[in-house]
Design a protein around this nucleic acid. Structure first.
Lengths: 227, 227
DNA sequence: GGCGGCCTTGACGCAACTCTGACGCCCCGG
DNA sequence: CCGGGGCGTCAGAGTTGCGTCAAGGCCGCC
């Protein structure tokens, strides 16, 4: 869940924000002065900060600098001042966005979403998914298989087949399903393909290919990958 | 140098932006319609995009989506519309910021700086900038390749290809992904480009180009850079 | 206007991969 | 005991993909 830190000294604004944010499943912390804000930020590590520049105890820009000293968390500034200088100062101090009051709640929430979105990790879906067995290691992200310290070369079909099986570790995958996922939807009965390529995989990955421990045949049904 | 792509069909606005940006040492490309914009973005790979929503040939939101299909480049939207719905739509389509016309040039530039700043690599200190192998060294920040004490000259395309591979060191990069990142989103099947340019890279960087140790071909799938 | 560098494109030989058929084995049921 | 279906193995044929070279076109620079 996304955590938001709201910093404002006007209770009605804080209330409006908190209600709207919670309704949209954000987790919300609130602070009414700069000192509390900096403490809360350090303690709670919010995913995004909404900061009103007009605080009782310190200048809003100082809060920005205080945060930027140690974090790149997105900061969305609220302010009653329309002056261009104020905006420039806040943005150059490290703010990510600047909204002038009165603001539309829809717009603020959209800007918040934008700020959170771009702070997300760069890789859309790449994470090093490692699957290990006693004999070998499969890296689904890098498309690599390592065995005894050496990379094993797999052909596209071999890799594809391995991937489907590994993604279903421990589960039985039917022959029809395997054929359709690897060779395409118009296949389904060519079980000889499976026999040939399973043999290749076993030869390349199993310690004893004729007595497989990981690539198990379920006669008449399909195959199963076990770690 | 930071490269900016300005997309607007009003000549006077484009002129004002171009003059101000160039005065501040930005490199500027300009497009006056959406189709040109998408083509230019693919060809020039700007560091930030300034986009006016009111274009003659297509909806601005479509331009945003077109860009977001393959790049996370910051997009700063300009618009004459103050409506909240428009802002929300643009931001949720993937825009990073939204400025209504008339706008203050100072503010726009500050927002531009903010957008560029947060797009910079996360690591405060330089880390992955230098990638070394036994034969050569790639400096991603300086865009330089050194081999045996001498700088190697690479053409723009060669460098781009190298950069994508090095940024994914150890990982397999699919041919479609390579083509789209280097040649633009409308490419995907021209694998002969890859063959030609991989050959160039190997000739310039590998000790034995016909038996590459670093630029590995994975037949039918893609290429992989190994240190 | 000529020149050089760079990008595109096509052709060709070769290696790798996929497909296919044949054969033998094992398990199970008749 | 015999027969059949499903599976594993092997090797050859056909196709695809890769590396290489060279020619042509485009653009910027001198």
């Amino acid at each position: 869940m996304t955590r938001v830190l709201v910093i404002d000294d006007e209770p009605q604004i804080v209330r409006a924000l908190v209600i709207n944010l919670k309704a949209r499943k954000y987790e919300v912390d609130a602070a009414h002065d700069g000192a509390t804000a900096l403490r809360l930020a350090a303690a709670r590590h919010p995913d995004v900060v909404v900061l009103d520049l007009g605080l009782p105890d310190m200048d809003g820009v100082e809060v920005i600098k205080g945060l930027r000293g140690w974090t790149r968390v997105p900061i969305l500034v609220l302010s009653a001042r329309h002056s261009s200088d104020e905006k420039v100062e806040a943005l150059d101090a490290g703010a990510d966005d600047y909204v002038t009051k009165p603001f539309g709640m829809d717009e603020l929430l959209a800007r918040l979403r934008a700020a959170v979105r771009r702070a997300e990790p760069a890789g859309g879906e790449e994470e090093d998914v490692l699957v290990e067995t006693a004999e070998f290691t499969v890296d689904l992200a890098a498309k690599k298989v390592n065995r005894g310290g050496r990379d094993v070369r797999l052909t596209p079909t071999e890799w594809h087949l391995l991937e489907v099986l590994v993604r279903n570790t421990g589960r039985l995958v039917g022959q029809r399903q395997l054929l359709q996922e690897v060779w395409g939807p118009s296949y389904g009965t060519e079980t000889n393909y499976l026999r040939v390529y399973m043999a290749q995989l076993r030869r390349k990955l199993e310690a004893d290919p004729s007595h497989p421990k990981h690539f198990i045949t379920e006669p008449g049904m399909g195959y199963r990958f076990e770690r």
